[in-house]
Design a protein around this nucleic acid. Structure first.
Length: 575
DNA sequence: GCCGTTTTCGGCCCGACTGTTTTCAGTCG
């Protein structure tokens, strides 16, 4: 079985976690974390690389290369196996409890012979922790709360839900006159697909006043921590929100600090030191005189570090700092680059709105083209027929006259069966302008079967794009297991686009797949899969995935004019 | 474990907050 960069990165991350629990030097732990990110972000496939190739990956030294080599050759990393054997599985759950890190977890485990969350709860019930040096009654209470929080919100919250909540909180704070600037930060500003806790940054000359106003907001529940510049609360629904307040002159530096990621901050702070500067949330300072040289905006801080402003979705220490310093940051795609939507539904199948409403709303988006792609009859629940789908053409032709500035495309979302076949014969398919094919069932086939079926669908000259390629639904359904490198290579070979589905519970492809596929030269589509007019606003989530995957508009089919879209379709059909 | 105009050892980003501490370690981001 091929070994992907992601596979290797996952193992290195696991090594880091297990080493941390085992009490190893934190810098060694960080070395593994850094290596994992570097491998995941590396442009070339690690499988089949020679030793020199592996050593060419940034932050990979001799020791790391040997371990990666071992895994590529044998499928295992013996040190990892040993650590796994030494550390009970339950122990690893302990350090995921908020407030409990590797140090305390290890002390507790050793002193009380505890290795599961259940045993920990029991020990706290008997107040056994407070007898350990450095721990006390408060620690016991906090750990219990942490466990409760983990169980309630163990799954991270979807970005759209977090964003709505953050916007509501910020709206509530706007009436506070002490607030000068306010913005989301953290993983939410970086637009990760799921969010652990919400970070909000404000600038003010009266930090206390801002925090008072914040704590009085209706949706704020219990206060976890409260200091002079920072407080953490749980909302009534159990979501953690951190508010940090800084003086307005430090806004830019604070925004960088609070946006993260942690790894990105570590990287640019290291860079600052090399320039005899030090960076914290209050600004960029000269190391010797402590004079502040930049702080007011993010732009001036990055500029003083010798690089242009880095868009937040890139700030993951995935090579963006090096790219910025070298002047090779991607010219990132943005929402207004999109000229069309290539995956949408109507109430002919499972959409909620009639075609007229969908098309009208699409025209108001200012799109150049718009594809109506209802489900084909391979999905039995849809009660649709070939005749009904073909008849939709007449409605589209009539609507086209009403909306002359937007070209309507008649399409379908086909269903990929077990063998990779789709709903209709070639002659029927040829009567449509644009065809997505998607997996809607058989989610548990083997990796080989899934890979084969997707590639077979891409071989079809009338399949122009694969819709929501992994079929995952965040928090509800795992992605299907296919070999991403094989699928990406086949997409390029067959001239088939891969969709970035904007639905917040799909976000499929995900950004690290996008980044890898980009290196293969894959063409992408970014489509809403809208089932109602409201779903058009989900475009922001698809764009976020594309940005996190370093995409430029030239890599996305529906950023191109209609003529180029038609050429793409024609090329595929000529195969 | 990585790395090097501080180069083969000794560093490795920085500060807020908490709880247990009389000066600091752990956790978090």
């Amino acid at each position: 079985m091929p070994k992907t960069n992601e596979d290797v990165a996952e193992l290195l991350d696991e090594m880091a976690e297990l080493l941390a629990i085992s009490g190893y030097d934190p810098f060694r732990v960080r070395a593994y974390e850094k290596a994992a990110r570097a491998v995941a972000a590396y442009a070339k496939d690690i499988d089949g690389m020679d030793d020199a190739g592996i050593l060419a990956i940034p932050t990979i030294g001799k020791g790391m290369a040997v371990r990666i080599r071992e895994y590529l050759d044998t499928g295992a990393m013996h040190e990892l196996e040993e650590l796994r054997a030494q550390i009970p599985a339950g122990m690893r759950e302990l350090i995921h409890i908020p407030g409990l890190g590797p140090k305390k977890a290890r002390i507790i485990a050793e002193e009380l012979n505890i290795s599961t969350v259940e045993e920990l709860i029991a020990a706290i019930g008997e107040h056994k922790l407070k007898d350990i040096k450095g721990l006390g009654l408060k620690t016991e209470e906090n750990i219990l709360r942490g466990i409760e929080q983990l169980r309630q919100h163990g799954d991270r919250i979807r970005v759209d839900i977090a964003l709505a909540l953050a916007e509501e909180l910020m709206e509530g704070l706007k009436s506070c006159s002490a607030v000068i600037d306010i913005a989301t930060a953290g993983s939410l500003r970086r637009m990760q697909e799921t969010i652990g806790d919400i970070d909000i940054l404000a600038s003010s000359k009266d930090a206390n006043g801002v925090m008072e106003a914040f704590l009085e907001l209706e949706m704020v529940g219990r206060t976890i921590a409260r200091g002079d510049t920072k407080c953490s609360v749980l909302t009534l629904r159990g979501m953690q929100v951190d508010l940090r307040v800084v003086p307005p002159e430090a806004w830019g530096a604070a925004l960088i600090y609070f946006t993260g990621s942690k790894a990105h901050n570590v990287k640019i702070r290291g860079l600052a030191l090399k320039k005899k500067l030090t960076l914290n949330e209050y600004g960029l300072f000269k190391l010797d005189t402590k004079t502040r040289v930049a702080a007011r905006t993010e732009e001036v801080v990055y500029k003083r570090l010798g690089m242009p402003w880095i868009p937040p979705p890139l700030r993951e220490d995935g090579g963006e700092v090096e790219a910025a310093a070298g002047g090779t940051l991607p010219a990132l795609i943005a929402e207004d680059h999109l000229k069309g939507d290539l995956h949408t539904h109507t109430n002919l199948t499972d959409g909620q709105a009639p075609i007229e409403e969908m098309v009208d709303a699409a025209a108001k988006r200012g799109l150049e083209y718009y594809a109506v792609t209802d489900h084909a009859e391979g999905l039995p629940m849809m009660r649709v027929t070939r005749e009904k789908l073909l008849a939709q053409r007449k409605i589209i032709d009539a609507l086209q006259k009403k909306y002359p500035s937007m070209t309507l495309l008649h399409g379908m979302e086909l269903n990929i069966d077990k063998a990779g076949n789709v709903d209709y014969d070639v002659d029927t398919l040829a009567r449509f302008d644009w065809l997505n094919a998607s997996v809607h069932g058989l989610f548990n086939l083997t990796r080989e079967e899934q890979t084969k079926r997707i590639i077979a669908a891409m071989e079809n000259p009338h399949v122009h794009a694969i819709g929501h390629p992994t079929g995952r639904q965040i928090g509800r359904r795992q992605p299907i297991d296919f070999d991403p490198e094989a699928v990406f290579a086949a997409a390029v070979r067959t001239g088939t686009a891969l969709e970035i589905n904007c639905f917040p519970d799909r976000q499929d492809l995900k950004s690290d797949h996008v980044r890898r596929a980009r290196e293969h030269g894959v063409t992408f589509t970014i489509s809403t899969d809208a089932h109602s007019v409201n779903h058009f606003r989900n475009v922001r989530y698809g764009i976020a995935i594309a940005q996190r995957g370093w995409l430029e508009p030239s890599m996305v089919l529906n950023c191109k004019p209609l003529s180029e879209l038609k050429e793409f379709v024609a090329r595929k059909r000529a195969r």
